[in-house]
Design a protein around this nucleic acid. Sequence first.
DNA 1: CTGTTAGCGCGTTCAT
DNA 2: ATGAACGCGCTAACAG
Lengths: 344, 344
Amino acid sequence: MGIVAERVTLEDVAREARVSLATVDRAINGRPGVHSRTLSRVEAAIAKLNYRPDPVATRLSRNQAFQFCFILPVGGTSFVELLSEQVRLTAEWLAPQRAYIDTLLVDVFDPDALASLLEGLGKRYHGVATVALDHPRVRAALDELASLGVAVVTLVSDAPAARRLRYVGIDNAAAGRTAGTLIGRFLAGRPGVVGLIAGSMALRDHSERRFGFAQVIGAEYPALTVAPTEEGRDDDRQNEAIVRRMLQSPDIVGIYNIGAGNRGVAAALEASGRAQDIVYVGHELTAHTRRFLVRGIMDACINQDAGHEVRSAARVLMAHCLNEQLMPDQERIRIDIFIRDNLS
Amino acid sequence: MGIVAERVTLEDVAREARVSLATVDRAINGRPGVHSRTLSRVEAAIAKLNYRPDPVATRLSRNQAFQFCFILPVGGTSFVELLSEQVRLTAEWLAPQRAYIDTLLVDVFDPDALASLLEGLGKRYHGVATVALDHPRVRAALDELASLGVAVVTLVSDAPAARRLRYVGIDNAAAGRTAGTLIGRFLAGRPGVVGLIAGSMALRDHSERRFGFAQVIGAEYPALTVAPTEEGRDDDRQNEAIVRRMLQSPDIVGIYNIGAGNRGVAAALEASGRAQDIVYVGHELTAHTRRFLVRGIMDACINQDAGHEVRSAARVLMAHCLNEQLMPDQERIRIDIFIRDNLS
DNA sequence: CTGTTAGCGCGTTCAT
DNA sequence: ATGAACGCGCTAACAG
């Protein structure tokens, strides 16, 4: 150990197998036109010398470029802005490696818009990373992309039935359970009602979070009641009105905001003067939610790391195109919990 | 956008500046022997064409290998085993890029052992990632390595005064505060005593965690008292005895294990029959602490991602050696909070 | 001071 | 079915 292993090159293999470079190359890359006898000679040589192709040299000689496309929701919640920014940074990071990223925007509340966009993509890109929707037409569009040979990953929200390489995002039911446990434990036996706000229950991730949340509260916190879910379209103003209405009931002891629009929730809470008293949990760490955590308005924030997700999606696409391996540990997207004290 | 940018090569720059490849190379890499006039011509050409060196080609032609060394604590707590395993995986990942990693083990409770080891390293390695100790001799050894031109990062525990490239790890005072807030909120007003177990208060990270913890409890949870810290040397058996003793007092309502040895703590808690009742927070997500979380013995586990830390340290060393940029967002080590519901 | 040239390890035509 | 030779973009030795 500690000795620098002399690099085994294609030439070493060729010499060992008593053939030329080109033949070894054909053998390795499974191209036709190699006698089975020489093939096994080459394989033997590779095994004997423990040859591993040099990825750097491979990349240089292949001299190929990649086009990727990231499809994000239009309409700019803070989290989406974070995502875009991370796509920009990732694009900068990949450019020297000749992978170029386009960003496309789509209305995430409209399945047909997303499906049309996907359908129009054709073979223009080597890989596509997209927020998805659990909708037949979207699924079909993703499948078609896949069958065109385009690498597809779903990002942040999934279309489970589609033939994507991978879903890069969190388990939203588990995220909902996490919110439930945090609210339940922070309330610690205090009885009352927990108000729920979602963007839209038609969004799979929102309904999954709600499911997980209700499951935990129902099973483990009998003193708490979950109010019917209000839909605020991820909009600050609508959310503010909703929370204002909720707070008219004195029974409200907790609020779980399933989607975006935390500024609206926080505004209503502050205006009511009960912000410190009511346990409020929401999603996605942004400049705003950080502030709410620090001020004690928000008690916990459940987060998925936008940068990690974007980089992971990019790595998955790259690895697929270069057919390289990836490190599974690195691609596991965590359900982060942030409180006032562990804000990175 | 979307058009594949034609790659600008050194040759383009050379042509534009009306000099040879070699001269451009000298100019770019700041090597001596270039007339200031030609130098500015080259710089102008680079700016005009917006030339960026191709890192892949650079790597191939330089054809250099790197030797790195990771120094980990001997004595195998579960977390240290996780670290070793991640070093192994990272080594596998870097080998194709011709960076080779040795792992050395050292007794982390003995500053002189660590210092001697570091002092003996000389220029054998291009980079060293090491668990550190805030000790004069260790600091001096690290500084000497640095002045020998070796890239140094501290891993998991820091020597703040040393001339290291970076500390790859978490803010332990913040981690302690996080533990404090979690215990305080989970207890929600229940009065009593919180028991503290550390490996050794001579370890900087342990005393920082204790500090943050006591700060939060003292300032915000007046119903709680922090018991004097017991030292268990990160050992399961010692910790078990300590907790058994603690539990003889009926006032104990919470336990914060600052260091390793969670199996001992959990065993004593279970044996007492009060595991569900006492709020127990510890560090580092391992196979064991996962189990304790699922069973409700442990209420929260504060974690630093071993894989992330090792990869980050490796990236920092590589980037330094190749003098490439790194993405700051990717190197930020989070203070993870895990509860039963968000176990990845 | 500056230019020429031979690699780095592999992919990819062309010949044979 | 196999081999020779050039190119990818850059570095480094050696000339001039």
